[in-house]
Write a protein that binds this DNA or RNA. Sequence first.
DNA 1: ACCAAACGACAGTCAGTACTGACAGTATAT
DNA 2: ATATACTGTCAGTACTGACTGTCGTTTGGT
Lengths: 196, 196
Amino acid sequence: MSSSNNLSNDDKLLLAAIDLIAEKGYNGVSTQEIAAAAGLSEKTLFRRFGSKQNLLEIAFDRFHYAEEMQYLFNEKLAWELQTDLLLISRTYHEIMNHNRKMIMISIKEEGNLPGFRERTQKHPRQFLGILTNYFTAMYEKGKLIRTDPELQALSFMMLNFGAFMNNLDSNDNFPTVCLEAFIMESVQTFTRALTP
Amino acid sequence: MSSSNNLSNDDKLLLAAIDLIAEKGYNGVSTQEIAAAAGLSEKTLFRRFGSKQNLLEIAFDRFHYAEEMQYLFNEKLAWELQTDLLLISRTYHEIMNHNRKMIMISIKEEGNLPGFRERTQKHPRQFLGILTNYFTAMYEKGKLIRTDPELQALSFMMLNFGAFMNNLDSNDNFPTVCLEAFIMESVQTFTRALTP
DNA sequence: ACCAAACGACAGTCAGTACTGACAGTATAT
DNA sequence: ATATACTGTCAGTACTGACTGTCGTTTGGT
């Protein structure tokens, strides 16, 4: 009745693992808890995944959304700074938010489970590359002042990364600031700074 | 020979605890490891601190540097955007870097040991307040365009916060970008955007 | 109805961990 | 020398956590 989702038992376990490990850390959560949160027995957990570590590993691969965003830019860009930066900023937060639990895990567990950090940082790297190319192209079109495009791209990313990290624990640390207002203000700042 | 620092035994334990917990997390480190890293016996650890949790608690209070920065601004500000933002940015990174281990702990252990997060966020909050006031004052002096000073201050902080978080694990994730160049570029961006 | 695959309940193994107690060693101050 | 205030060693307790084996029960497909 209550836990009659149409999820497979495997997915229930994987999602429960992600939830709990993101919250309490890998060493802060027991296989009992994970199984209980999934509404299944601990035995099933080990039958299906063999070990706790393998459970997390598979969970990570299964639910780490790695959508390609290359096309998103090539198709949708208007080559007008303000609207493009808005699109980029929103897309960034969308993707990061989609993977927020994985990012939380990769940050917390970087000392214990090596290799996770790299996976969650594919997107940011890709973003940085795309954004750098975008700035370069905009400069060549005469729509941007002369700057170091990579440093500029990094600045814009760090700004959004900082905002994302600040909202990660969802109990907003800095009061009364909604993300949308923040995005619009910061995009306007960069637009004003970079237009010739 | 090797571990003949002139630190007290208590401080050796506290510093070892901070090092290891920041790296592996509270549940990822045993009291044995901490004592061994301090070059002391586990028994001494418990004799002096009673419990593992109390050890961390005291370590946090003892080595969480809470320097007052209010004066730093009131005294040193030149009321000229670029130089002031540079000062603010560098001061921010200095303080955050000084407390990097504590911040790491507070992020990793937020789900397990409540109350630590708040302590490490006193500085950021104070920073935000001061910076907001600064922007307001600068606007009244006619040296700033009209914007929401709090949002603007938040943007500037988030940018630096993002850069700090990105460098936290010290194996720089985004290649070949030194902090100083980043600071100068981002300050220039904000200066250009905010001067009338 | 029947079979096979998956599941749960239970007991149990084994290593690790926070923490304690008893006893002995070492330095310094008087 | 003696007291004091520290230490380290070692054995041990109580508990938890990852993981396994057994067996009976459930479930879905034919």
